[in-house]
Amino acid sequence: MNRAALFDVDGTLVDTNHLHVVCWWEALRQGGHDVAMHDIHRAIGLPGEDLLARLLGEHRDTSEDDTLSAAHSTLYGTYFDRLPPLHAAADLLRELDRRGWRVVLVTSATDDELDALRRAVGADDAITATASSEDVTEGKPEPEPLHHALGLADAAARDSVFVGDTVWDMEAGSRAHVACVGLLCGGIPRRDLEEAGARAVYRNPADLLAHVGNSPFADRRRPPDPTA
């Protein structure tokens, strides 16, 4: 009986949400689109096509999508060597690994972005598996990324917890019937995370680590003791 600790990465373990906002704003500006940064921020965490649909409308010229996404990726790539991990992110993953959880990263990032994010977190020794946008056909808020991650961990939803920072994370976890924990470090208000399905909300990884003993992680089933 495995227990999976599923983690979003951008805005949850690495302080990148506002970098994404600036990069999407500049990519959109280059494409002739005037979009407020506040609106972009609320869309962060969606796959690129869904983000553009939310910001530009379903009836936009979709032939621009690849160009806009490529511009964002190029701009964001300039930060790969200095992405800032959130305080205690690595410590949190290692503590959960020590407690017997299978840690799986679940992200809308591409494989190249995920490699840079993993280097930033610096806790590969505690990570069982990773799931990127290239592993699924539908991203968050659809539950497919969570189902894929649970398969990688060989764990049931009822025994697992998903930690994220956006409403899309909370909605995906809820649809996958996984206990959801929200973090405020991505910039989304507590009430929005709770309304989207968060069972508990913490300020950041350090806050969750300090309270992990009475968080939803404490409520999940414990694996049997093989020596018993």
Rank of each mutant, 00 (worst) to 15 (best):
L46C: 02
D81V: 13
A206H: 11
C185Q: 07
R42K: 13
A5M: 08
G213V: 02
T16A: 12
V104N: 03
D159K: 03
N17V: 13
V22Y: 09
P189V: 09
A176V: 08
L150G: 14
A116T: 13
L93I: 04
H41R: 14
T137S: 13
E49C: 00
L193P: 08
E113H: 10
F217D: 01
E195T: 15
H18D: 13
R60T: 12
A71D: 07
S132D: 02
G77R: 07
D34Y: 05
C180Q: 11
D124L: 02
N204W: 04
A206R: 14
L56R: 06
D66P: 04
R42Q: 10
V22F: 02
A153C: 09
A196D: 02
A210S: 15
T137D: 12
V212D: 01
V212E: 06
R221S: 14
T12W: 00
N204G: 10
L152P: 03
D10P: 13
T166G: 04
L68F: 03
C180T: 11
V106S: 07
L68A: 10
F80I: 04
G182R: 05
Y202A: 14
R42M: 11
C185Y: 05
M170K: 12
V181G: 09
A4W: 05
R190P: 00
P224R: 10
